[in-house]
């Protein structure tokens, strides 16, 4: 039972991490329909930016996080502006953008490895606290992962529902054609979602830096799991991305209660496989055709 409780909390923590990644990726994907593969290395770049701010510039963690978010937002927006937008203007198929994104993925990942070296990076002297609640252990960083997910997704939800820009994003997500007709500048909206989505990814990136350290190749898993969370939850739904991420984390953790851990990397996909077969529109998505 103790093990179950621990696994449950683990699932919640990791699920929160996935959910936040999914929220950022999903916002970009649902609005622009670009499979933004380079979300991965931008996540990595954010982690290294936070490392740079905390370790080299000596900023406090919160400021480092903010710095990372700015770097990620800038990179994300630039990616849209200089990589995807030209393809969009020429009305290329979305597959072309996907392969271009892959090209950027390779470029960024290797660039980071050259600039920062191939070894791992940790924030020197940073020590997190450990809490013991009943039989369950967790650290302050893990608590941070859950809180960050709740606070950021809630703010994002409010932003989308209440503000003028947020509503423009929702309208574009719903129907880009219609959005253009009613006078929304969809290019501007795309730029905005790339900035917000990328900035969102910087928070989990910083937390991972604090928890496990940063490596140049950490981005692949991040974008992969974000993509999967979005599809499991349903494209175009913030609630869906959160639910998808949490579900993945839970399945991955609780699923291994009895199953040998060598199946860790595939168990989420077995569930995913079944979910999509039985409920192709995702857990929360609307049926799209």
């Amino acid at each position: 039972m103790d093990l179950f409780a621990q696994l449950f909390v683990n699932g919640l923590i990791n699920g929160s991490h996935y959910a936040l990644l999914g929220a950022g990726f999903g916002l970009i994907f649902a609005t622009t329909r670009i499979v933004h593969f380079a979300y991965g290395p931008i996540f990595t770049a954010a982690a290294y930016a936070a490392w740079f701010a905390a370790n080299v510039l000596g900023l406090p963690i919160a400021a480092a996080m903010l710095f990372a978010a700015l770097v990620a937002a800038a990179l994300g927006t630039a990616t849209y502006q200089y990589l995807y937008l030209p393809f969009e203007l020429r009305q290329s198929s979305s597959h072309v953008a996907l392969i271009a994104s892959l090209g950027l993925f390779i470029v960024l990942e290797n660039l980071i490895a050259i600039v920062f070296g191939t070894g791992g990076r940790v924030v020197d002297g940073y020590q997190y606290d450990i809490f013991l609640v009943g039989p369950v252990y967790f650290s302050s960083v893990q608590l941070g992962q859950v809180i960050a997910m709740i606070v950021l997704t809630a703010s994002l939800g409010v932003y989308l529902a209440r503000t003028r820009h947020g509503k423009a994003i929702l309208a574009t997500t719903d129907n880009p054609e219609m959005a253009r007709i009613i006078g929304i500048d969809t290019v501007k909206v795309s730029r905005l979602v790339f900035a917000i989505g990328s900035a969102l990814s910087a928070i989990p990136a910083t937390l991972i830096l604090l928890k496990d350290g940063a490596t140049p190749s950490m981005g692949f898993f991040a974008v992969f799991i974000a993509f999967v969370a979005v599809i499991v939850g349903g494209v175009g739904s913030l609630r869906g991305a959160i639910a998808g991420g949490l579900a993945l984390g839970m399945v991955e953790s609780l699923g291994l209660w009895k199953i040998p851990t060598e199946w860790q990397s595939s168990i989420a996909f077995i569930v995913l496989f079944l979910v999509v077969l039985l409920r192709p529109q995702g857990l929360f998505g609307r049926a799209v055709n």
């Binding site: 093990l3 291994l256 860790q264």
Partner: peptide
């Protein structure tokens, strides 16, 4: 078991502790 460079090994550790 953990994958090489796995992002997350909390489940393994929990099982080991158990």
């Amino acid at each position: 078991k953990m994958d090489v460079g796995a992002a997350n090994i909390d489940t393994q550790i929990a099982k080991i502790r158990a």
